[in-house]
Write a protein that binds this DNA or RNA. Structure first.
Length: 497
RNA sequence: GCCCCCAUCGUCUAGUCUGGUCUAGGACACAGGCCUUUCAAGCCUGGUACAUGGGUUCGAAUCCCGUUGGGGGCACCA
């Protein structure tokens, strides 16, 4: 039997990192078994429809490398894969259930239903559910032509068992199940009907979903019984939680895939991280696995049953590890859009700028947690800096006068240097420090602040090369002025006295 | 409130099915140190966990029951 699994998002918003983790599991499961991964769009809620959601969903999946074998855009033998294009099928199936005595028409108004619920709540009832007002009306009491819904006729007694691949059998009391609406008054199916019909018609073999769906699964099982179909194998996977221990949602900050992309996470890092959130190959003490390894090792039975908190810290670390593993050429390619989006370099990149960028890449590679970090780390190269303050230019245990002397000597040295490259800079500047009897680190610190106005910056010599001699000398001169002015002000009172 | 799921370091997890090799292993984060031009990266060291009570057993993180705790679900939403 060929494994067929699906991801069935509804286009009511943008793909969410918690859901995506479940998609990763489905995709890995399909690829591990050489099965099919199907994308189906569940757009049966017209009121919550978001126009470009479908595009964002496909883009996100594609970005993460989660390719699908059947679905919108590429078709397949079981299409269409968009539920709004299958409405006749659902209506037909709903009528079929009425004919079989498994469903009934109901014309209760939303107002009446709300009133019933309110009363039940007021009475402190433990079960808030439809009072089955229309269930026993004669078959012709409600005309197919008047506004109404179709409800599932849930057995009043007995139990329904959900077989879960990971948790075993889960029993539900039928008396506690609501007469679920299958077809809405606008003619659209609800999730419960559509998912069962489509999963069956599309030959879905395994349904892997978040465990927040467990409690509605018995209704689906009942539907399979009503239709006389064999249900798929269910595997409910744990939810992804935010740092506060609640189901991950927009409230927790960055959760849409697009945000992760814009923040500079690598898709391969996010994929690796997601795969290991709630699942582990259980071999060795590794964290970094290639896509191929994950496919080869994926075992659905090793999915952890407890919910997992999404750790941004660990993702950052993993992203940094992936960045460090990139070739310089590849990293450069991925960094360019981030420089461009920050407005630091033009699009397209002028050819004469390439060598500057190439100088920068090895300087920042092991310092980046995300690609976007490169902006703050290297902006001083592309745009003018704020003039550093005198205080920031004077290292601890150094006088202003001495700092100025150092700057002047450095300035003269760099101006006259034959080869303005990293090696020469380091050699000559160390020599200068030795000649002046000061610590090399102190000299470097002054230059760093003077040229970058940062206390923390990429390695100095490479940074200066990237900056270029002209700009470097200009910024040194500016810093000298700052210190001169500072000294003049400081010494003025002394000289009076 | 009712129903359901879950329970190993702060977090992600290995170990649980097939009890002994677990004085519980790894990773992230954290602390200290080394390296060092800042910051990183790298290396070394450290602390912190089997929720709890009862069984079963020669022996339980591992099996059973209760309790507690956490989460989820109870729509003409998916």
């Amino acid at each position: 039997m060929t494994v067929r699994v699906r991801f069935a998002p509804s286009p009511t918003g943008y793909p969410h990192i918690g859901n995506l983790r479940t998609v990763v599991f489905n995709w890995l499961f399909a690829r591990h078994h050489n099965g099919k991964f199907i994308l189906r769009i569940e757009d049966t809620d017209r009121s919550r429809y978001v126009k470009d959601a479908l595009r964002v969903i496909s883009d996100s999946l594609t970005w993460l490398g989660l390719d699908w074998d059947e679905g919108p855009g590429i078709g397949g033998a079981y299409g269409p894969y968009i539920q709004s294009e299958r409405l006749d099928l659902y209506r037909q199936k709903a009528e079929e259930l009425i004919a079989k005595g498994w469903a009934y028409r109901c014309n209760c108004t939303p107002e009446r239903l709300e009133k019933v619920r309110a009363e039940q709540r007021a009475q402190g009832k433990s079960q808030i559910m439809y009072d089955r007002h229309c269930r026993n009306k004669p078959p012709d009491a409600i005309s197919p032509d008047e506004p109404h819904v179709i409800r599932l006729k849930v057995p009043l007694e007995g139990k329904t068992v959900v077989h879960d691949l990971l948790r075993g059998d889960i029993e539900f009391d039928n008396a506690l199940l609501d007469d679920q609406i299958l077809l809405k008054s606008d003619g659209y199916p609800t999730y419960h009907l559509a998912v069962v019909v489509d999963d069956h018609m599309m030959g879905i073999t395994h349904v892997m979903r978040g465990d927040d769906w467990i409690s509605s699964t018995p209704k689906r099982v009942l539907l399979y019984q009503a239709f006389g179909w064999e249900p798929p194998i269910y595997a409910h996977v744990p939810l992804v939680l935010g740092p506060d221990g609640k189901k991950l949602s927009k409230r927790h900050g960055a959760v849409s895939i697009d945000e992760f992309r814009r923040q500079g996470y690598l898709p391969e890092a996010l994929f690796n991280f997601l795969a290991l959130l709630g699942w582990s190959p259980g071999d060795g003490d590794r964290e970094i696995y290639s896509r191929e390894e994950l496919i080869a090792k994926f075992d659905i039975r090793r999915i952890n049953l407890a919910a997992a908190v999404f750790s941004y810290d660990k993702l950052q670390w993993m992203n940094g590890a992936y960045i460090r593993a990139l070739s310089e050429q590849e990293l450069l390619k991925r960094l360019i859009p981030f420089w461009q989006n920050a407005g630091l370099i033009p699009t397209p990149v002028p050819t004469e700028m390439i060598s500057t960028l190439e100088t920068l890449v090895p300087l920042v590679q092991e310092r980046l947690k995300t690609l976007r970090d490169v902006v703050e780390l290297t902006d001083f190269v592309f745009q003018d800096i704020e003039t550093p303050t005198a205080e920031s230019l004077i290292p601890k245990k150094t006088s202003a006068r001495q700092a100025l002397r150092i700057l002047q000597r450095v300035h003269a040295l760099l101006a006259g240097m034959v080869h303005f490259n990293e090696e020469t800079l380091e050699t000559e500047l160390r020599q200068l420090a030795a000649d002046m009897g000061v610590k090399a680190g102190a000299v470097f610190n002054i230059i760093r602040v003077a040229t970058t106005n940062k206390r923390v910056a990429p390695p100095l010599f490479g940074s200066l090369v990237a900056l270029g001699r002209t700009t470097t000398l200009q910024r040194l001169a500016r810093a000298e002025e700052v210190l001169s002015a500072y000294l003049a002000q400081e010494s003025a009172p002394d000289e009076e006295a």
